[in-house]
Design a protein around this nucleic acid. Structure first.
Length: 899
DNA sequence: GAGGAGACTTGGAAAAATCTTC
DNA sequence: GAAGATTTTTCCAAGTCTCCTC
């Protein structure tokens, strides 16, 4: 596990060190550099903050520093040997003058994005000269694997970076405005402290809904999405608890009365049929049901390459499998002789996999009635767990099912991935319920671990899982009042940050030149958290995947640019869920210099911010605003960005979005949403079918254009005078030559003929099936041949059309008129536009997941405001679940609401 | 103040439900 | 109404942050 590199650098930053780094940094603007760096005297240094104790052992420094940096070293020990699965680089360059990285890192083209530097006019830090970012040598470390670097995301990130400056400026202006307005308010009316800010409830709308976009929900009605929903659904609204209309200022007590029915345990293990065996060294073996169950966990997921293809996963599984074998008497062959299972490679789970696959397939291919019956049975079994009574109200429970046993699917290189997640027994489960309420009965023959009555927490049941010792909880659903309130508070806190953001930014810009190392590190970290929306980056344990956030970044995760491209930093690290963050950003000269300073006397595996951790950072943030933490910046920046993007749409008077069609409105919303997702680095893997789906859509567009092309020829037949209409003919020629092309038309004709044949064949087969089912004679093959002549005729006709379209494309309908043809073309245009919009959206979303930001980061009131302002039904952007979750926002927001 | 436990939010993948097309 | 595509929901891992103990 990585060491922290804690306190390795000097506590103070000396003048000499500053000057040294000044000489090392790439050729920046001299004047600005002079302004930007506070040159400090050695003599006035006070060790304001001593290095904190080491969290973990560290590796010895590779090279002794001989400069005059203060010397508060702590011993260093070895750290993790790899980063992102690749061997670590050699220790970073020494402190000598030549430690400006001159090595050329790569020559191939690679993405590069630029986050514009902070350049507020009132900033304490001078502006850095901007360099043209294009046509320069790429800086990324690893050229072999850019596959997960989304091109679309890259472009969008660039565009977001361009806008970021304006977005920040707007934030600055807003903060000042808010404070000015507050000053004007009579003192008594001003909100005194943060708690009161926190507890402001969303204002309810005056009675009934303003339009049909806000949506109610029928209790228990499962998400029959969008189209079927009717306004009647809202009839039950009256019975609903609108917490946002109430005053509840107590944060510590979560409920007064609570009753529920406990948890639902997974079904017992059903042994495999006798003939389904695990094979070892080519021979079937018999296992104790407990061991067989574990073999089944692995066997049923053979198609999950991400897991079974991971050697750690396999090794961990095998380890646990061997343990369970030992405990249960081992494996036996057909003769009852013991088989010593010692080589994973000799295990063959195919039969088990096939069995489970067949089972899944059988489930899939059940008739509608069977599926319905099974669902009804499942629903009945689950019904009593679906809801609980909280303060007398019925609230939905979220995850009432106890997690079934299986293999732990830790992500990335989690050291425990593949370990057996054991079955949770009632004896491990603690129930939390109101005093005096009926305690749900544990399964027969069992007891609960404990029954408690803690109303300061929101969970109904809890247990510990065996893999990491993490606590699991049964909590209320996202639509519940408790979760709703907490969501609302989260967004209000982010809004509260609006008031302070200018001050905070100004302060961290100032601290970027602080002589106190911890302050300078904190300021630099805050710069990243604010500009790049990095996560805080808590410390992690030895037994977890090696992922990092801002505070836990190590030297090996950043690469500073060469002299050819000053002030660029390439980040390459695995963040939450082992999702790669790989980006080159332009930073201010001061930030760049700070990073150089922080790198001094450290190895690649040392902490970049060796004097900073998340509690320290958050403690500092709280001095600005109670409750402010690093996480709030992500919510704030996400919501603020979204709001600003929508303002841009509003400001576009040339193309008023209000007048656009639904597709365009959705696209505009998604584009704004996408910017937020990119900011937060929300990625997803490209679906297997993506390329095929795109090709299909492209084909669909061409098909429609081909139809237009034919209609135009028909129009020429109806009105030959059109031939003199230059624009008409130019359009037609363009369609033929540029859009469709001769080659495409030829292929399309073949496809049409082939399609016709298949259609005839299928129809024929179906008719025969029916005849046979009715006990009648099937049609003769000659009948099929007769019918297929229609396809031959089509082929001939199309060949003629291909040869001379003008002459041979005939008017298909005798009643056709020019007007009717034009209408048809217009209709086709409309549907082409819809497909093209879909394609743009699809391609842009290829690697970017919009869901997480919509669900967790963007204040839902911004979306509601957008929908109301641009007259877009909320169903188009919020699914049923989201509408339920954000009912408070839908109910309380009007078109003029501002984040 | 370090370290761990506990409580809660955030996150992508997989499964399930629904829609669309033929 | 079947098949395939797409969207929505569920699942549970993995974060953040607070609180408690020593």
């Amino acid at each position: 596990m990585p060491s922290t590199g804690r306190g390795k650098g000097p506590a103070m930053i000396s003048k000499a060190l500053e000057q040294k780094v000044d000489r090392e940094v790439p050729d920046g603007d001299e004047d600005q550099a002079a302004d930007g760096i506070a040159v400090l005297d050695d003599v006035d240094m006070v060790d304001a903050v001593a290095p904190r104790g080491q969290r973990r052992a560290r590796k010895p420094a590779v090279k002794e520093d001989t400069t005059d940096e203060s010397d508060d070293d702590v011993p260093l020990t070895k750290r993790r040997k790899t980063v992102n699965g690749t061997p670590k680089k050699a220790v970073k360059e020494s402190d000598s003058e030549d430690d400006i990285p001159l090595t050329k890192r790569r020559t191939s083209a690679v993405k590069k994005e630029v986050v514009t530097q902070h350049s507020d006019s009132d900033s304490d830090v001078p502006l850095t000269k901007k360099r043209a970012a294009t046509n320069k040598r790429p800086l990324v470390k690893d050229e072999s694997d850019d596959s997960d670097v989304p091109i679309a995301a890259s472009a969008a990130r660039k565009s977001l970076a361009k806008e970021k400056k304006d977005i920040e400026k707007a934030a600055d202006v807003t903060a000042k405005k808010i404070r000015a307005a507050e000053k004007k308010k009579p003192a008594a009316k001003r909100v005194k402290k943060e708690e009161s800010e926190d507890e402001v409830k969303p204002k309810a709308k005056p009675k009934a809904k303003a339009n049909g976009t806000a949506n109610g929900t029928k209790k228990g009605a499962k998400g029959k999405a969008v189209k079927d929903e009717s306004p009647q659904e809202e009839e039950e609204e009256d019975e609903e608890y609108k917490w946002w209309l109430e005053q509840n200022n107590d944060n510590s007590v979560k409920w007064t009365t609570l009753s529920h029915n406990g948890v639902l345990f997974p079904p017992e293990y059903e042994p495999l049929p006798k003939h389904v065996k695990l094979y070892y060294d080519g021979k079937p073996v018999t296992l104790h049901p407990k061991a067989e169950e574990v073999a089944g966990f692995f066997g049923s997921m053979l198609n999950s390459e991400v897991n079974v293809g991971n050697p750690i996963f396999c090794a961990n599984f095998f380890d646990d499998f061997q343990t369970v074998l030992k405990e249960t008497g081992g494996a036996k062959d057909a003769d009852g002789k013991k088989v010593n299972i010692k080589d994973f490679k000799k295990l063959d789970f195919t039969k088990i996999f096939e069995y489970y696959e067949a089972d899944r397939e059988a489930k899939r291919s059940r008739s509608a009635a069977e599926k319905k019956a099974a669902k009804a049975e499942k629903d009945a079994a689950e019904e009593k767990y679906l809801t609980c009574k909280l303060d007398g109200r019925t609230e939905k429970v979220g995850n009432f099912r106890v997690e079934p046993p299986g293999l732990f699917r830790g992500r990335g290189q989690h050291p425990k991935t593949g370990r057996v997640k054991q079955r949770v027994m009632p004896e491990q489960v603690t129930i939390n319920i109101g005093k005096g309420e009926k305690v749900p009965s544990p399964p027969p023959g069992h007891n609960w671990a404990k029954v408690i009555h803690d109303n300061t927490v929101t969970w109904l049941a809890t247990w510990k899982e065996n893999i990491n010792g993490n606590t699991k909880y049964v909590m209320l659903a996202a639509t519940s009042s408790l979760k709703g309130m907490s969501d609302f508070k989260k967004f209000e806190k982010a809004r509260e940050l609006k008031k302070h953001i200018d001050r905070i930014r100004k302060d961290y810009q100032k601290d970027l030149v602080s002589k106190v190392m911890v302050d300078r590190q904190r300021a630099t970290a805050m710069y990243f958290i604010d500009k790049l929306a990095l996560r805080a980056g808590n410390e992690k344990g030895e037994d977890e995947a090696d992922t990092v956030g801002c505070c836990s970044l190590r030297l090996e995760h950043i690469t500073l640019s060469t002299t050819e491209e000053p002030f660029h930093v390439t980040f390459d690290f695995l963040g939450k869920d082992s999702i790669r963050y790989h980006d080159t950003v332009e930073v201010t000269e001061q930030v760049y210099k700070n990073l150089k300073i922080f790198e001094k006397r450290k190895s690649p595996e040392d902490q970049l911010f060796d004097r900073l951790n998340t509690p320290t950072l958050n403690a500092h943030l709280r001095s600005y605003m109670p409750g402010l933490t690093a996480k709030v910046f992500r919510t704030y920046n996400a919501s603020w960005t979204m709001a600003q993007e929508i303002k841009l749409l509003e400001a576009d008077k040339k193309n008023p979005l209000k007048k656009a069609n639904v597709h365009e409105k959705i696209l505009a919303y998604n584009e704004a949403n996408r910017k937020v997702a990119i900011l937060c680095n929300h990625q997803r893997t490209v679906g297997k079918a993506h390329d095929t789906q795109m090709e299909k859509l492209e084909y669909k567009v061409k098909e429609k254009k081909y139809k237009q092309y034919r209609i135009k020829h028909m129009m020429l037949k109806i009105n030959p005078k059109l031939e003199k209409d230059k624009s008409f003919m130019a359009d037609l020629n363009n369609l033929y030559k540029n859009v469709l092309t001769e080659k495409w038309i030829e292929q399309h004709h073949k496809d049409l003929v082939e399609g016709e044949k298949v259609k005839i064949q299928k129809k024929f087969e179906k008719e025969n099936e029916k005849l046979e089912a009715d006990g009648e004679k099937p049609l003769k093959d000659s009948e099929l041949e007769d019918r297929l002549t229609a396809a031959d005729d089509l082929e001939k006709q199309l060949a003629k059309e291909f040869k001379d379209p003008k002459k041979n494309i005939a008017v298909e309908n005798a009643n056709s008129t020019i007007e009717k043809c034009e209408n048809n073309i217009a209709k086709l245009d409309e549907s082409i536009q819809a497909i093209e919009t879909q394609m743009i959206d699809k391609e842009a979303n290829k690697t970017i997941a919009l869901g997480t930001s919509k669900l967790n980061y963007i204040d839902p009131r911004i979306t509601v405001m957008f929908c109301k302002k641009f007259e877009l039904p909320i169903e188009k952007v919020f699914s049923k679940t989201l509408r339920d979750k954000f009912k408070w926002a839908i109910d309380s927001t009007d078109e003029n609401w501002d984040f």
